[in-house]
């Protein structure tokens, strides 16, 4: 899989600092499972975090600090077994998504929004006024022109789409500013399945699209 679109470096720094919201960090982690380039960049940004930590002035620990630590260690002395990476499901769903979609893509309970567009909202992720959802776009179908009150991050899981920015295929991540105005079209013979996180509601710009908004609910 050749990945051509990656998160913004500022987004990678935010992930390393731990300030990305839950929804965005989920989409970024799902991308990074397949993207050695971005994993490497994240390690570099975390190295910066380590260096900043090492340069902090020391704050004196309360008196019994070290004794307390030994006591905590002795209360539960076992070394923590290394976490095994969750296997990704057979249909190519990234492993970080399996807690939210345990049956894989095949058993997603889709809800049809309008002909050619279906969605499934992932629950249990704190996204403020936004959301994390899967969107399935049938071949040739266009998502109406929209901008974003906040950011939008989209990871392509299957298929592809084309918009004003370029062509996005499986593994690509579109990291969009509030200023971006775009209109994606699924451009191959198979459905385009995307994972989309937002932190604000989308704003549709055309009259017809605005009428659709309450229906689509994104």
């Amino acid at each position: 899989m050749t990945i051509n679109h990656h998160p913004d470096d500022a987004t990678i720094m935010a992930q390393a600092a731990g300030v990305l919201g839950e929804g965005f960090s989920l989409v970024v982690a799902a991308h990074m499972e397949r993207c050695p380039r971005c994993l490497e960049r994240l390690a570099e940004a975390e190295a910066l975090g380590g260096e900043l930590l090492a340069e902090l002035p020391a704050a004196e620990m309360a008196g019994a600090g070290l004794g307390d630590v030994w006591q905590r260690i002795h209360e539960a002395p076992a070394a923590e077994p290394p976490k095994l990476r969750r296997p990704s499901s057979s249909d190519g769903l990234p492993a970080v998504l399996t807690p939210y979609l345990d049956g894989g893509l095949a058993s997603v309970r889709w809800r049809s929004l309008v002909p050619g567009i279906r969605q499934h909202v992932l629950h249990g992720i704190d996204s403020g006024r936004g959301s994390v959802r899967l969107l399935g776009i049938a071949p040739g179908i266009t998502i109406p022109h929209h901008t974003h009150g906040g950011g939008e991050m989209t990871l392509i899981l299957k298929g592809s789409y084309v918009d004003e920015i370029g062509r996005f295929q499986a593994g690509d991540l579109a990291d969009l500013d509030p200023s971006v105005h775009h209109q994606p079209v699924a451009d191959t013979g198979e459905d385009c399945i995307c994972l989309i996180a937002t932190d604000e509601r989308l704003r549709f710009s055309g009259m017809f699209s605005r009428m659709l908004q309450p229906l689509i609910g994104i």
Partner: peptide
Amino acid sequence: RKLHEVELTAEADRPDEGPGGH
């Protein structure tokens, strides 16, 4: 909050590095 991250344990297998991979 939850931080979603790729596990980077020593045991974690890295994905195959395809063309263009570092």
